[in-house]
Amino acid sequence: MKAEFNSRVDLQREVIKIINKRSLKSQLTGLSKPAIDNWFYVNNISNELLKTTLIDISEKLFFIANKSQDHITEEYKNLQLSVRENIFELKRIIQS
């Protein structure tokens, strides 16, 4: 179970590092919806695709966190892969 926790935390860190590489007024401090909303507001960002992608990642990681006490299911594994795909998309969005 510790490995699943570490994997989820590593995914969260990766997302935050990708976002915070940009030089903006404020850095993203977490992946909760209020943290994401605040980051967009403070930095005056209006990129809806970026926001949707971040919230999607956030929701999936929250689900993974709640399922980490359960046996690892196919759904859990698929969500981890889906988060990886979202991170790839996030990198693409940031670079454009």
Rank of each mutant, 00 (worst) to 15 (best):
N47S: 09
Q27A: 09
S46G: 11
Y41K: 08
A65L: 12
E14I: 06
N78L: 06
N66L: 09
N44K: 04
E75G: 13
D37P: 00
K77I: 14
I87A: 01
Q12D: 08
E74K: 15
Y76T: 11
R22I: 13
K17T: 01
F40M: 09
N20W: 10
K21P: 05
I55G: 10
A65P: 02
K2D: 03
R92V: 11
N44W: 07
T52A: 12
L79K: 12
I72M: 01
N86Q: 08
S7V: 00
K77Y: 09
F88G: 11
I94Q: 13
T53Q: 14
I19G: 06
K77A: 08
R22N: 11
E59I: 15
T29Y: 12
E4S: 07
I57K: 02
K33E: 14
S58Q: 04
N38A: 13
I87G: 00
Q12C: 14
I36M: 07
E75L: 14
T52M: 06
F88L: 15
N20L: 07
L50Y: 01
S46C: 03
V9A: 07
I64N: 02
D37M: 01
L90P: 06
E4W: 15
F62H: 08
S96C: 08
F62W: 08
S58P: 03
K77M: 07
R92C: 07
I94M: 14
I18T: 04
W39F: 11
L28V: 02
L90F: 12
A65W: 15
K91M: 07
I45T: 00
N86W: 03
I36Q: 04
N20T: 03
K60S: 11
R13A: 03
N78C: 00
R22K: 14
L54R: 00
Y41G: 07
L54A: 10
E59C: 08
D10V: 06
Q27H: 11
R84W: 04
N6T: 05
T52Q: 14
S32H: 10
V9Q: 10
K17L: 05
S96V: 01
K25C: 09
E89T: 13
S32I: 01
N78R: 10
N44G: 01
K33F: 15
Y76C: 00
I72A: 00
K51Q: 09
L31D: 03
N44S: 08
S82Q: 06
T73S: 14
E85V: 05
A65Q: 13
W39C: 00
L50Q: 01
N86Y: 07
F62T: 11
F62M: 09
K33C: 13
K91H: 11
N38L: 14
P34A: 02
K91V: 12
I93T: 12
D10Q: 09
V15Y: 05
L90G: 09
K91S: 04
K2R: 10
A3R: 15
P34M: 01
V9G: 04
K77S: 06
I36P: 05
E89M: 11
E48P: 00
Q27E: 15
I36H: 06
N20V: 03
K51T: 01
N43L: 05
P34S: 03
N43S: 04
N6G: 03
I57V: 10
I18R: 06
I45N: 01
Q95F: 03
L54G: 04
I72W: 05
K77P: 02
